[in-house]
Design a protein around this nucleic acid. Structure first.
Lengths: 233, 233
DNA sequence: ACCTGAACACCGTTCAAGT
DNA sequence: ACCTGAACACCGTTCAAGT
């Protein structure tokens, strides 16, 4: 039902813009997953035709680039409100806090890491985020060389997620005998491990078995290792 | 030009099979990248029609599952030839060797990690690979609990690759002033770091800036950290 | 300037039909 | 049993045309 208006002003719909397109893209992906994000469904969300989008974005890849920029900018805003450490040795908790804050943002957009990984051009926002990490590490006493290694070692963990290829809590474990042979007997060490740790893990995050506890374990392992390397490789 | 044959036997082309389809899929992706791997081009490679593939595989996802299984099986074969450690404390080099061997296989299929990450069902071959890692860690004195954490901490590194969101050697660095403002002044800490490390990195591997040295640095950081946790969290 | 309809070249997949 | 042609529902994208 269209509000026809009184006279000459015609505003049947607020006009499209790059910002509106990107916001709608995030909404569509949040609600329907990444496979729902097509140009046609994105246009639907905006009450327009697919072809109209091309006036505001170059192509679909441009939408994906833009969407990542919006999300990482949000991360930068959240992270910018975290205090910089006063003490010298507190680089670790400062970096840790930022990474966990970034993670909180990405948890609201579980599809975003997959898009982030496929970007070929470096987003300004991603550069800014890492620039800040380097600053904190330098202030914490790192050499440039170790800071550089640190960025590589952290990899995608720097932005708050990690790739889990293997989900111990899912396919093996629990009830054995789901396969042609008994899984537990095919993979005895894995099965034994899972039996003992009783990996009950109801929170699946970011789509992989990558829950908060395990993420922090891996993160701290790396941060502790880096801490030992300060002031020299 | 078809070899017509002498009489009644008609073998214009060896018949399709799941194995042939998967082998062709790997070939197509190796040669043309992941975006080249469509059902139609895959059929072309086999001298058949796209629709014929569906007699041997259920759907495209099945092709991707199968292709990963083939590659990780190859990894398992390579890794199976590595000696198991005699000494007790050598778990680390045993795991390290396996991971670096897995990496060598994946380096020949740079598109494979991206497919691996999107699998929803756990491959038997991936289970087997991780079962072996757990075995080595248990023999090396790890508790099941720490071994479990270790798998999570390694994440995709266990199979020889890591996600690099940020490529210091690429967009920033080198010649400044490519953007609207000077990149080096926008990201001073990053620029300073890059200037000092003079990151000349001609080998791009797996498609990300994730070269052998940096991969091993991150891997060793994690393995060393794990070593300290043996026999207790 | 902003938006659209029709059209193009491609997808994955189904299904009835061929041998 | 194995393979195929025609067809369907969907993509991203172009381009000339509308306001």
């Amino acid at each position: 039902m269209q509000v026809a208006g009184s006279g000459t002003e015609t505003q049947p719909r607020l006009p499209l813009s790059r910002e509106r397109v990107l916001a709608a893209a995030i909404k569509v992906a949040d609600e329907g997953g990444l496979e729902a994000l097509t140009m046609r469904r994105l246009a639907d969300e905006l009450g327009a035709e697919a072809m109209s989008l091309y006036y505001h974005v170059a192509k679909k890849e441009d939408v994906l680039d833009g969407v990542i920029d919006v999300i990482v900018t949000e991360i930068n805003n959240v992270v910018g409100q975290i205090d910089v450490p006063a003490r010298e040795g507190s680089w670790k908790s400062a970096v840790r806090q930022r990474i966990l804050a970034a993670r909180q943002v990405l948890l609201r957009h579980p599809w975003a890491p997959r898009v982030l990984e496929t970007r070929t051009t470096m987003s300004m926002a991603v550069l800014r985020y890492h620039d800040e990490l380097v600053r904190l590490m330098r202030q914490g006493g790192f050499s440039n060389d170790v800071a550089h290694h640190a960025l590589h070692a952290l990899g995608s963990r720097a932005l708050g997620f990690s790739q889990e290829l293997f989900d111990p809590g899912d396919s093996a474990g629990a009830d054995p005998g789901t396969g042609p042979q008994d899984l537990a007997s095919q993979f005895p060490h894995l099965a034994g491990m899972l039996e003992e740790v009783a990996h009950d893990d109801p929170d699946s995050t970011l789509g992989w078995c990558d829950d908060q506890t395990e993420f922090e374990f891996g993160l701290d392992l790396i941060l502790d290792g880096l801490d030992r390397l300060r002031d020299g490789p």
